[in-house]
Design a protein around this nucleic acid. Structure first.
Lengths: 148, 148
DNA sequence: ATTTATTCTATCGACTTAATAGGGTATCCT
DNA sequence: AGGATACCCTATTAAGTCGATAGAATAAAT
């Protein structure tokens, strides 16, 4: 399950990617636009900032803006930040591997083998999708919808 | 995250697939072999039985056995049974679709688009893996390990 | 200085998960 | 018949996580 935090984070980032660069957006405006509880969004944006994904400016005219090019912000990083490793089990994680205490030989563990495939498939999608590419997908989908 | 229930279920089912067919296994033996708390495993096997995946026999010489051929038991069904839909968000689920209350147009929602890809990738793996095929993978992995 | 807007810490209730307890019921064997 | 065996079922609990809110502190602009 994707947490609300991760979901809200992606929505907010997409909105920021759509917004003019170098032009900060306020928490309250973002919250209203994306239907997110403002104080909750506050926490999320702060987390994104502390991980170098967002920049912030305080005071009048301040707010949040992307710290990097949208083509350099991967969904995989966002999801891992809020929800932890992509792998369904720790022993199948590439970025946060933890051995199973009980498992005598992970190389011949059915659960391990199957879940490693799941984690690879998930990582292929999320580490292959950037804010920019996702924005492109949304635009193309909007065109299709309009034409019908 | 894969729950312990789902993890234990897969382990137990694999053990049953390895075991001679028509020959029941006791909860206590399965629990010892797979390092699972016996009373917890009891609950899990009962669930599998109530969904037609296992059969049971009571009394002396009783226990649990597979209700179908291992080639007809899909990991996707097991995981869904214990952990719910594979999709990270309800609006991306094929088997348990639920619309997002706040989302005005899901066709152009970035989260929806990305998570649908994740769910499809996950489903491709889990609905493409059976107890029999997984058993095969484990066997092949065991050969490789032995040869080195 | 005052306004604006982010920063930080603490807290809350609701829900879920992993596990255990304990009695009930069906079946087999002698 | 009757005990032993082993599954069946419901309830409970302790711990942890999640979504959300509160409120004061800090920094920047005018």
């Amino acid at each position: 399950m994707l947490s609300k935090k991760a979901k809200y984070a992606i929505k907010a980032l997409l909105a920021l990617a759509d917004h003019e660069r170098e032009e900060p957006m306020r928490i309250s405006d973002l919250a209203r636009a994306e239907q997110i509880p403002p104080k909750f969004l506050e926490l999320i944006l702060l987390g994104l900032k502390n991980h170098g994904i967002l920049q912030s400016r305080k005071g009048k005219g301040g707010g949040y803006l992307l710290a990097r090019d949208p083509a350099d912000i991967y969904l995989g990083q966002i999801v891992r930040l809020f929800d932890g490793p992509l792998a369904p089990v720790p022993c199948a994680s590439q970025t946060a591997y933890v051995r199973c205490a009980d498992c005598p030989n992970e190389a011949v563990c059915g659960v391990h083998l199957a879940m490693k495939e799941v984690r690879d498939a998930t990582a292929k999608v999320l580490d292959g999708t950037t804010l920019a590419s996702l924005r492109g997908q949304v635009e193309r989908a909007a065109l299709v919808t309009t034409h019908s």
